[in-house]
Design a protein around this nucleic acid. Structure first.
Lengths: 135, 135
DNA sequence: TTACACTCTATAGTTACTATAGAGTCAAGT
DNA sequence: ACTTGACTCTATAGTAACTATAGAGTGTAA
């Protein structure tokens, strides 16, 4: 199949597929006489694997590492677990950060109703350093 | 003060300050004969304002809009509130997404202990499209 | 005067793509 | 044979908010 069909079937855009090739996530496929890329089913499966990983927000680098591990049979799969654990930690701290942010924004939002002229806006006041030194 | 001192006092890096100037978030300061930037206290306060906003993860564009509003006295501050509300929504949906992600990763992590050879790794198996078609 | 810290501009790199320009390929229809 | 249209090719630039670097100039203290 050509790249357009692969794109449709995999749900990746054409540019993304070419980008993955450039980045070495998928190997360069055969070409037609007219220089068009031709893909087989294994290529589609590789893309699906990458898609699954991206849905979990693994970076392209992490995915590359996973794929490299897959081709070293006999390796203990501890490294895979470690990577997932590390990723879990990252996601956890991102969530914590965002929750703090959310709380801060809520507090900020309380500072102002919506009918005041801008000079008296409690939000802008709160964001300004002068207001903080006033405390 | 010169840019190095401003950087230290504001907690922004020198490059970031120059970047903010290029992007129009702060105005171009006066220069010495030797072409060095010279800043005054209001400049430091502007940077502090930007820093406060960035800590809330507002984009530079949003910050620019806020600063523009500040200089239109008499404007009702509804727009400020709207921006914060919109931002709250974004943060909320990011949190929801990440929580889903976290749950998915946890499930994935369960699929594998850590003493198996890579061929039997439950995680890689789960990520591979073949395993899904096997169901 | 020379060593050193500081600053300047311009440019490239980061992440994972997306978008565009300009050219070439290919099959079907007239 | 010719043209239209859909598809593909490469190369390049843009996204957000910076960070890092090179190579040059400035300023000051010993």
């Amino acid at each position: 199949m050509k790249i357009g069909e692969l794109a449709k079937r995999s749900g990746c855009s054409i540019q993304t597929i070419r980008y993955y090739e450039k980045e070495g996530l998928i190997s360069a496929p055969a070409r037609t006489d007219g220089n068009f890329r031709v893909y087989d089913t294994p290529a589609l499966e590789k893309l699906a694997f990458i898609k699954n990983c991206r849905a979990l927000d693994l970076t392209l680098d992490e995915i590359k590492q996973l794929m490299a591990l897959q081709h070293l049979p006999g390796t203990p799969c501890e490294k895979v677990n470690d990577m997932i654990d590390a990723h879990l930690k990252i996601v956890e701290s991102r969530i914590t950060d965002l929750q703090k942010l959310h709380a801060d924004l809520k507090v900020l939002r309380q500072k102002c109703g919506h009918a005041r002229p801008i000079e008296q806006c409690g939000i802008l006041d709160e964001l300004s350093p002068k207001s903080h030194s006033r405390n």
